[in-house]
Design a protein around this nucleic acid. Structure first.
Lengths: 339, 339
DNA sequence: ATGAAAGCGCTAACAG
DNA sequence: CTGTTAGCGCTTTCAT
């Protein structure tokens, strides 16, 4: 149980004042070469490393080399991609990332938000549990730099990086309609999440563009997780007049839907076609290879981190909204309607 | 840009000294009911929340409600399960989790380890990049509570939660041998990771138990990621005398192997059989449903967090080693060898 | 039961 | 260029 050396000990060892050590640590220009060398040798000798805690406590302006990342659901591979994008940029800046997963639970989101705020992180990247989240808006108003990813925040001028969900969903459903499907169900996510309603809008837009009338009974909302895909798909397939195609609202829902379809021994696309929002690199290895709307997750994370570092450096720059495009990847889970 | 209230302001508002506010905050027994109420009202009124940074700086003994979690690869669903187990327990303790992903890179591991250490977290849960990792051993020796998951640490008396990798691998390969396979390849992970060599041992043990001689050319090591599964499987299938079955060393490798097999239009299990280490809840939705060795990831995380909180409370308890069992889940990716 | 005062490890004025 | 001094926000003796 060795107690780590502190700055004062380094100062003593180098025969200088604590202030000078601090200057060396922060690469201040006004230190004599000779002195700097002596201090550096003392740092080496004592294996000294500054306490990040003390530094964050004292420093107000200069960033503390730590950002917070609040993820809605770490089980969702899409967010994992976002995380990787953020991490890579942060690492390139020598900046730590405090990542917390709130598992689509507002209560947990608030818990971690409090922690992150009181840890005095330099900035926050998050996907709000809901667009009118009082707590998140409070945090934004408190002045800490925030970048929203995947979902925006109502009435808040904040940086955000999102995708064009409506276009992505429309493309997916138009693809199904083009293949002759008419009874197309949509297994949607949590209703309060903006991306859910945007994707629903895209679903309706595709019907409208084709001059078709959607059946409201074919749209179901769940909790955006695996089990909702599994259970809602079962409900839909149990309908007297079941859908011939499914459009699933995210990654996890897609996987849940696949589980139900396979457990029932149904064939895709002959018995039911499937197109999912969110691609996964192993979608080709699913049965059958999945047709999906691909979001640039890594890019979203990268851009969000860039925006955050920019804002930390220049707090008064006007908020930016980056909208990235989705791509429909056609594989083999749709096919022509054979009924 | 509102500056949050501090303890001094609360003291002033309540007409007491800072020390008393601190006592209320820490639920000290010796505060008059009347005083406590006044302080609590002031806290409410000012929306005061203590600074975790200042608290961690000052406090030595009492835990600071923050643990660190260092994950080898957040893209691997197995570690995601571990993360969830840790998080759930931490949340139940009102404790924050600082999670960092080092992406199987020793350099990143050291970077985050430094950060976590200098953040003065109460304890650390990690899967060391290598069993003889100097830096990790240094951290352990420095006295901060550490629990290793998935992989141990050489020559260090430290709590750990692992699975019986050798038995898991042996069961998988025996299953293949039982189905008539003889040319069974093993796409292994990073050689320096203990689980890699333990699984390799299991692979050899199965051959030995069956009185068979393994072909060294059929064992390949990669970086434990998706691309290594993809590329090494391609190499193996290009052999003059290719394997009839594949045993993949983890989740990501399995997915990579599937990609190669599907791209080549080969059938599983007729052309090549496949059993993977690590199950995924959507393994049933793969083509074909995957036979896999299942590890209790969530349970590993849960137990590790329990061990850590125990150790924080009782630093001198002797180190515990928890070994959990794996389960072979037989689905349809093996089948009888038809060649 | 409460307050005064010292100090955790560091940074930032201000002198010199 | 370098040292002295005063805190950041909190906890913790030691008095009272």
């Amino acid at each position: 149980m060795t107690v780590p050396a502190n700055l004062k000990q380094v100062a003593r060892a180098a025969g200088v004042s604590p202030a000078t050590v601090s200057r060396v640590l922060n690469a201040a220009p006004n230190v004599a070469r000779e002195t700097r060398l002596r201090v550096e040798r003392a740092i080496e000798g004592l294996q000294y490393q500054p306490s990040r805690v003390a530094r964050r406590l004292r420093t107000q302006d200069r960033p503390g080399q730590m950002i917070g990342l609040l993820v809605p659901d770490i089980q969702n591979p899409f967010y994992v991609e976002v995380v990787r994008g953020v991490e890579d940029r942060a690492y390139a800046h020598g900046c730590g990332v405090m990542m917390c997963n709130f598992a689509q639970t507002e209560e947990k989101e608030h818990f971690f938000l409090d922690i992150l705020r009181h840890e005095r992180v330099d900035g926050l990247i998050l996907a709000p549990a809901r667009p009118d989240d009082r707590k998140v808006m409070e945090v934004v108003r408190s002045g800490i730099p925030v970048v929203c990813v995947d979902r925006g925040l109502k009435d808040a001028d904040v940086d955000m990086v999102v995708v064009d969900n409506m276009e992505g969903a429309r493309a997916a459903v138009e693809h199904l309609i083009g293949l002759g499907h008419r009874r197309i169900a949509h297994v949607a996510g949590l209703p309060q999440i903006p991306s859910t309603s945007e994707r629903l809008d895209g679903y309706y837009a595709a019907f409208e563009a084709a001059g078709l009338t959607p059946d409201a009974a074919l749209v179901r909302h769940g909790n955006s997780k695996h089990e909702s895909g599994r259970d809602l798909t079962a409900e839909l397939l149990d309908l007297p007049e079941p859908p011939t195609a499914l459009f699933t609202g995210n990654n996890l829902i897609t996987l849940g839907a696949l589980e139900t379809i396979h457990r029932r021994g149904l064939r895709i696309p002959q018995d039911v076609a499937l197109v999912g929002f969110d691609d996964m690199y192993w979608a080709i290895s699913l049965n059958p290879p999945l047709t999906a709307v691909s979001q640039p997750g890594y890019e979203i994370g990268r851009r969000a981190a860039d925006l955050l570092f920019q804002r930390v450096a220049e707090p008064d720059r006007p908020p930016a909204k980056v909208v990235l495009k989705t791509t429909l990847i056609v594989r083999q889970s749709c096919g022509a309607n054979s009924r």
